[in-house]
C-alpha cells in the first residue's frame, strides 16, 4: 500500500535528517515506527503526508509510493484526497473551534457531504466523551480528550491509511490503554491501515503487526512485532529491560545508544 524507497529529507536546504529511509506498510496492517527522540520519526510521517513544506523541509531523493502512485511531490491537500491522513504530534486540535467544528474540519475534503452527519455519530460512538462536549471549545478539553478529538477528526476524512504521531504523548497510562484499544478497533472495524509512531515501544508492539526501528534517519531493524519484542537489543534500548530483567535508567540507555550497535 505504502512504500518508501531510500527517502532523503533535508530541512532548510542544509540539515539532512532522513538518510535513505526505506520501509513498507501493507494494506490492513498496523505498523509501528519506533525510535529515540530526534531519530526522524515525525519527519518520516510529514514526508508521507506532504507536510514538510511549512517546516521548510523537502524530499530530495528517493520515492514514496501510495497504491503504486508516487506522492512525494504532491501537496498535502492531494495526499489527503488520495486517502492518507496524519494525526500530528501534540494533538494540534483547533483550539478556538468547537469539538463539532473540529470534526467538520476533518471532513473538509469529503465529497459525500450527506454522510458526514452519520460519520460524526460514529466518532461519538468511539469516543462517547466527545458527544457530551460537542459544543465546547476544543482548547478547553483535557489532553486525553484532545487526543481523542484528533483521532476522531482523522476518522471524519475516512482515510485508507492513518498516520499517528505519538498518540500516547503526555497521557496517563490508563488513558493510553484506552486510546490504543480504539486504534486497534479502528483498524479492525473501519479497515483503516495504520502507521503508528511511538516512544512507548511496549504498547506499540502490543497492537502492531509489524515494526521498524529507526535511528539517525535510517531504519536499523525491522521485523514482526513479535520478533522485535523478543529481540535482545530492542528489549534493552526500547523496552528498558536488561538481560537480567531489571530496569535501566534512561541515562544509561542513552549512553548505550551512542554505540549504535545495530549499525556495526
Amino acid at each position: 500500500m505504502l512504500q518508501l524507497n531510500n527517502v532523503e529529507v533535508i530541512y532548510n536546504d542544509v540539515i539532512l535528517v532522513l538518510k535513505g529511509l526505506s520501509m513498507e506498510v501493507k494494506q490492513g496492517q498496523i505498523v509501528a515506527l519506533l525510535g529515540a527522540n530526534g531519530a526522524g520519526k515525525s519527519t518520516t510521517l510529514k514526508a508521507i503526508s506532504g507536510l514538510l513544506k511549512p517546516d521548510d523541509g523537502e524530499v530530495t531523493d528517493g520515492s514514496i509510493l501510495f497504491m503504486g502512485q508516487p506522492i512525494h511531490n504532491k501537496d498535502a491537500e492531494d495526499i489527503v484526497r488520495a486517502g492518507i491522513f496524519q494525526v500530528m504530534e501534540g494533538r494540534r486540535v483547533f483550539e478556538h473551534l468547537t469539538v463539532e467544528e473540529n470534526l467538520q474540519a476533518g471532513a473538509y475534503t469529503r465529497r459525500d457531504r450527506r454522510n458526514i452527519a452519520r460519520d460524526m455519530e460514529r466518532v461519538y460512538d468511539y469516543f462517547p466523551r466527545m458527544a457530551q462536549r460537542r459544543h465546547q471549545q476544543a482548547g478547553f478539553l483535557s489532553g486525553g480528550e484532545q487526543q481523542m478529538l484528533a483521532i476522531g477528526r482523522a476518522l471524519m476524512a475516512r482515510p485508507k491509511l492513518m498516520l499517528l504521531d505519538e498518540p500516547s504523548l503526555g497521557l496517563a497510562p490508563l488513558l493510553v490503554r484506552e486510546i490504543f484499544d480504539i486504534i486497534k478497533r479502528i483498524n479492525a472495524e473501519e479497515g483503516t491501515t495504520i502507521l503508528l509512531v511511538e516512544q512507548n515501544a511496549t504498547l506499540a508492539l502490543g497492537i502492531a503487526d509489524y515494526g521498524y526501528i529507526m535511528e539517525n534517519g535510517r531504519v536499523v531493524l525491522e521485523g514482526t512485532a513479535e520478533q522485535l519484542a523478543n529481540n535482545e537489543d530492542v528489549k534493552e534500548f526500547y523496552l528498558g529491560l536488561t538481560e537480567v530483567g531489571k530496569r535501566k535508567s534512561y541515562r544509561e540507555v542513552k549512553h548505550y545508544k551512542r554505540r549504535k550497535r545495530w549499525l556495526s
Partner: peptide
C-alpha cells in the same frame, strides 16, 4: 459553512489545517 470553518481552522493552526487537506 465548510469554507468558513476552514478559514477559522487556518487562523488557529495553519499546519494542522493543511493536514486536514484544507486548501
Amino acid at each position: 459553512t465548510r469554507e468558513g470553518i476552514a478559514m477559522r481552522a487556518i487562523a488557529d493552526d495553519q499546519q494542522a489545517a493543511l493536514s486536514m487537506g484544507i486548501s
